[in-house]
Amino acid sequence: MSGKNYLDLMQFFEGYVRNYRRLNLTGDHNRSMMTNREIDYFANLGEMLGFDSFVEDSKFDKIKNRSRPMDLAWWRWDSLGDMEHYDHLALHLERENSFNKDLDTIDKLFSETENEYIPHNVIGIQTLNSNEKIEELNKVVKGRNSCQQSKVLMVYRYPDVEKELERVSAYLFTPRKADVAKHAVCKRDDFGYWFMCFEKEYKFYEAKTAKKEVQLL
């Protein structure tokens, strides 16, 4: 056993998809504002689950010999144990909207650091310009995690030009367990607000809409 406390990260992804419309994001919001809303969502989730959430929390990188802030950290407090220190870093989350910073995001999630800053769980949410690099990035993640042994959820968001929407693919990596993947879509509704739903739901909606159109002919 690794001794780590793994969380149900895929369930967190399902909640992220179901609640995305509640972030009230429109086409008028820039990437920075979208990133902040998403980080705030997970910060609030952490607090509701009993963790202490910190945005831009410091984390020392031994290789770079400097601190590199985490977009979001969940710290676990053990009220029955040491009253002066946190029990462990439960989650390190990074949200990156720049296409060319995908490897940097992974590097931050799996940086060589002090033992107490090694996260038990990590979530990386990365915007890409296509799905072509996903397999390559996942190989890098699994390679880096072979030492860290965290439970990992990588979420990639990329455009589908033909369908005029964005795809959201989530991959769960747990040490010594089979990988799991789930897929969703993200698009704007009739009022311009971004929402998400799972791919199967969207396909069902498309089929239902197509059937109605045929009936009207």
Rank of each mutant, 00 (worst) to 15 (best):
S2F: 11
Y6N: 01
R18M: 12
N19Q: 04
R21P: 03
L23M: 11
L25W: 07
L25S: 04
D28I: 11
D28F: 08
N30S: 04
M33E: 09
M33L: 07
T35A: 05
R37L: 10
E38T: 11
I39F: 01
D40C: 11
D40V: 15
F42P: 07
F42V: 10
A43L: 06
L45K: 02
L45P: 03
E47Q: 13
M48S: 12
G50C: 13
F51R: 09
D52Q: 04
F54M: 07
F54H: 10
F54C: 04
F54S: 06
F54N: 08
F54V: 10
V55L: 09
V55T: 15
D57H: 07
D61M: 10
D61E: 14
K62Y: 14
I63M: 02
K64I: 13
N65C: 08
L72F: 09
W75F: 14
W77G: 07
S79K: 13
L80M: 15
G81P: 12
G81K: 05
Y86V: 13
H88G: 08
H88E: 15
H92L: 14
L93G: 05
L93C: 07
R95C: 05
N97V: 04
F99H: 03
K101W: 02
D104H: 08
K108M: 02
F110M: 09
F110P: 09
F110Q: 08
S111V: 12
Y117C: 04
I123E: 00
I123N: 01
I125D: 01
Q126H: 05
T127P: 01
S130V: 08
N131Q: 06
N131E: 13
E136R: 10
L137M: 08
V140S: 13
V141H: 00
R144V: 06
R144W: 13
N145V: 10
Q148A: 03
Q149N: 10
S150Q: 01
V152Y: 02
V152F: 03
L153H: 02
P159A: 07
E162P: 00
E162M: 04
E166D: 11
V168K: 09
Y171R: 08
F173I: 02
K177V: 04
D179C: 06
V180S: 10
H183R: 03
R188K: 12
D189V: 14
D189P: 06
D189F: 15
F191C: 10
Y193N: 04
F195R: 09
M196G: 05
M196W: 03
K200F: 11
K200W: 12
K200A: 15
Y202K: 01
F204A: 00
E206G: 00
A207L: 09
K212C: 06
Q215K: 00
L216D: 00
